[in-house]
Design a binder for these strands. Structure first.
Lengths: 140, 140
DNA sequence: GTAAATGCAAAGAATTTGCTAGCCC
DNA sequence: GGGCTAGCAAATTCTTTGCATTTAC
């Protein structure tokens, strides 16, 4: 479980992966990152992508999002923030809402352990999907 | 994506699965449910477990929790509530904290779509794991 | 020079699916 | 009795891993 590695080297591959993640706000899957990195580095392997994504998460450079039961998604924004998920199209948007650290304290009173962090996600229908819905209901 | 099924039948298998989930607060995995149901119904198949868990989630009888990148876990408590997750042992506890519906409204102002729901999870170290940590640090 | 990282491919783990027989309504 | 379900097993899908080679420091 604990990785006793001396240090982490800088590699072109990891640099490219991080750059791809920093330049998008789409919260992509590992495979999407793979396709992107391949454009400038045709020989990267998926294994390298997965290994580096894991490393980047451990380094705190990237966040791992687990939504629904299919793919894991990655968030190139390392700062704490909340998300809005569209139930129709699956899109994930970053929210500007300030993080509410008092929540941790409230919970700390109830839990006998220690509370360090929290994750908050909102669900609904995004503007585009609402527009589509009203169009198709007019058709009917 | 849309299942155009006429109706949902009651079956012994689904009944057993729901009973197992209602009688535990451990937020088990599909496989754990499988092992439990097998005790009273040795011929159930894992496929049936997965199919029914999916159906139960769609029916709103059960909640699906996705934490970390490994297994999906299921929560037999159909009411909205928050969770506390121990980062050390992975245990998930239900919280008594009242759900804060105002949060949806706050976010609704920022998002151009519609916000229906939210999910809030706290992370930390549970009491048991904290006890173990202090013991092992005394050993050192 | 040496340990860490890559590429490639094969293995693994969790979940889904096709098909026939059986059970619910 | 018709159609949803179960059982069984094979298939998928996403992710991890072993190993020889390459690369960063």
């Amino acid at each position: 479980m604990v990785k006793a590695k001396g240090f982490v080297r800088k590699t072109k591959q990891r640099g490219a992966i991080l750059r791809v993640l920093r330049n998008t706000d789409t919260h992509p899957t590992a495979d999407w990152v793979y396709q992107e990195v391949r454009k400038e580095m045709p020989h990267v392997s998926l294994g390298t992508i997965y290994r580096n994504l894991k490393t980047l998460v451990e380094m705190g450079e990237v966040q791992e999002l687990c939504y629904g039961s299919s793919y894991t998604r990655f968030d190139g924004n390392p700062h704490r923030h909340y998300h809005f998920v569209c139930n129709e199209c699956g899109k994930i948007e970053d929210l500007e809402l300030d993080c509410i650290d008092e929540l941790n304290k409230v919970v700390a009173r109830e839990v006998s352990g220690r509370v360090y962090d929290h994750r908050l996600e909102f669900y609904g229908t995004c503007a585009e999907c609402m527009a589509e819905e009203s169009v198709s209901s007019q058709d009917a």
